[in-house]
Design a binder for these strands. Structure first.
Lengths: 248, 248
DNA sequence: GAGTGGTCTAGACCACAAA
DNA sequence: TTGTGGTCTAGACCACTCG
């Protein structure tokens, strides 16, 4: 049985791709556009193989790639489901804080402020905005009795309508983006620098102005690679570090 | 043909592992212990499959895992080789600096100092040293006409004998570790913090004492997971950032 | 017991690289 | 031309989950 997104040689863009790659991209597209929403169960392997016109082994190679990227979850005897950002592993993927004792750190919310505003030209560029209205969310979070981070988020109003109706916002924003606005964050880039504390950060984190803070400037993206959120986090790295594991 | 490291069910520790995993671990062991040194060419797939007593497809699944981890390189028509740390991709894996223009930054050496010393108790612990003699290597590197990093490395003398005979050391240390001392770095963990510049860093980087610097505290490990190098890099993040790509 | 994903095989054919 | 890795198939059997 032929499928529009697993089309044959008539599609010039896909004709050079191996079958397993075509099946992978077809399934990725279904997840990205919502035909297979987070949590949805996929047809079983024989069905998918028949649908895409490939063998069992080829279809499994495509599914293995999606699983490796954290897009689907497979369990023997249970089936294959579209992964949710809610899952613990996905939350930790974007929260890289560890304390000196070797334990993960999850800061708790201390305060938040939300306002609607017009994006700066740089923000319009970075968020690829067609319409310059954005939310500005500022959040202070703490750990072990003291404030450790000041985060300033920029969110397109077009992607997050009525964000103000959901306050106070939950501690974990990405699962909330997914469940409330169908905006799944699956990738992010952090540019890390050391910055002197400005007046607002100094007050929020109880340090002197000019004290060294770790700054993480983030662009968070969805499955289609579209920017969804800008975030500038300032961390007071006393007893806490931003951990990065590197490998060949 | 049977192999000691691809043994049959008589090996209780491995009996539960699937065949592709056993083949993968057997090959990983050969790379780790030097039977297959960096750059060495592996037997072709049919030979390996016969040697491990598995089918073509199963053997390929094991090789694919090693390739994904950057341990081997495979090229159609050419064969499979053990990857070298020298390869460009491997060097960049541990150098995460980008400038604001979106270009990679590779700092050039400005000065270096090397001394033999006794490791602190913390260093003995982190490097799992049986013998406390270490090299202390301090290096200052620059980019675009100004000093941008001050790096302090700690290397076990037992792993790096006669390190002093190789001065001046090359800019890329990890390929040098591999070629000169058979010490391949395949993984590292950076703990990032913001620190005020001490007197030495302030002088080396031409900033005021107390100025914010990005500090990367690294433990670099070989294929067996053994710590090979401790490194504390201080970066002047003016026009430069430490970039991290995160994904589910 | 029915249905799911996980493993493994044996063989075919292809594209690529080097002698 | 020879040998390499890359793709794909058809079918088998297993382990797990759940009703």
């Amino acid at each position: 049985m032929s499928e529009t997104d697993a089309s044959g040689p008539e599609d010039a863009r896909l004709v050079a791709l191996p079958l397993y790659k075509r099946a992978e991209e077809a399934m990725r597209a279904r997840i990205a556009d919502g035909r297979w929403p987070p949590g949805a169960r996929l047809p079983n392997e024989p069905r998918l193989a028949e649908e895409f016109g490939v063998s069992h082994g080829t279809l499994r190679k495509a599914l293995a790639a999606l699983e490796a990227q954290g897009l689907v979850e497979r369990r023997p005897g249970r089936g294959t489901r579209v992964a949710r950002t809610t899952d613990e592993a996905a939350v930790y993927a974007f929260l890289r804080l560890w304390d000196t004792g070797g334990e993960r750190v999850i800061p708790e919310p201390l305060s938040e402020a939300l306002a609607e505003d017009t994006a700066t030209p740089a923000e319009v560029e970075e968020l690829a905005l067609a319409e310059p209205r954005v939310w500005r969310l500022t959040r202070c979070r703490g750990h072990a009795g003291r404030a450790v981070s000041l985060e300033r988020m920029v969110l397109p109003v077009a992607r997050f309508p009525e964000l103000g109706a959901h306050r106070p916002l939950p501690n974990s924003l990405y699962p909330f983006y997914e469940s409330a606005f169908r905006q799944s964050v699956v990738a992010a880039r952090d540019d890390l620098t050391a910055e002197p504390a400005d007046a607002e950060a100094a007050a929020a984190l109880s340090v002197a102005e000019g004290a060294p803070l770790l700054c993480a400037a983030r662009v968070a993206r969805n499955l289609s690679g579209e920017p969804v959120e800008l975030r500038r986090s300032l961390y007071l790295t006393a007893g806490i570090a931003y951990r990065v594991d590197l490998s060949k």
